[in-house]
């Protein structure tokens, strides 16, 4: 009768997968980007909350692969295929990559939001996964919830209302 609906929480620099009726959520995306890959037929989806564009910018020995756009998406793809998703059916939606603060010194780190978005798109192009919809950039934080059942992505911003894409 009543199935227990789980809300799978994705933290910062984290990757999780889930299937309907579970929903996948990450909160407080600023310059970070939330990438969702999903298979509409299998109703299985995964979300990565990436913080930095490129694992080659790591200055630590053992890296957390979920933190970087390139490695997090490799892992997300692998996890979804293992869970039964078809690589050729996968589609994507993305949100985040805001530029929260503006400073005179436009260093690379200040532009981290747009750079994260670029890195994610580059990786999607590499895998030939189409981007169905996106809500990126701007200067507001976002909380996003993906429903693998309907393939809809719900986005909430402070003072900017809520949208579903």
């Amino acid at each position: 009768m009543s199935e227990v609906l789980r809300l799978i929480k994705v933290g910062i620099a984290d990757v999780k997968i889930g299937s309907a009726p579970d929903k996948i959520r990450t909160s407080g995306l600023g310059s970070c980007v939330g990438v969702i890959l999903y298979d509409e037929v299998k109703r299985v989806a995964g979300m990565a909350h990436v913080m930095l564009p490129d694992s080659t910018m790591a200055k630590q020995g053992r890296i957390n692969r979920f933190k970087y756009a390139d490695t997090a998406m490799d892992d997300l793809l692998g996890m979804l295929i293992e869970a039964g998703a078809s690589k050729f059916r996968l589609k994507s939606k993305l949100a985040g990559g805001a530029q929260m603060f503006h400073f005179k010194s436009e260093s690379d780190l200040m532009r981290i939001g747009p750079r994260n978005v670029e890195a994610v798109k580059k990786k999607l192009l590499h895998y030939r996964i189409p981007i169905i919809s996106e809500d990126v950039g701007g200067k507001s934080g976002r909380t996003i919830v993906f429903d693998p059942e309907t393939s809809r992505l719900h986005i909430r911003k402070v003072n900017h209302g809520e949208v579903t894409i």
């Binding site: 910062i12 600023g30 913080m51 930095l52 929260m100 507001s140």
Partner: peptide, 27 residues
């Protein structure tokens, strides 16, 4: 200090910006 910037937003979106420098060397 730099010029201050004021924002009203989700704390995750705000504080994560301060963690970016750090995130390149640590978790």
């Amino acid at each position: 200090p730099s010029v201050p910037s004021l924002s009203l937003d989700m704390v995750g979106a705000i504080l994560s910006f301060g963690l970016i420098e750090l995130s390149q060397v640590s978790d």
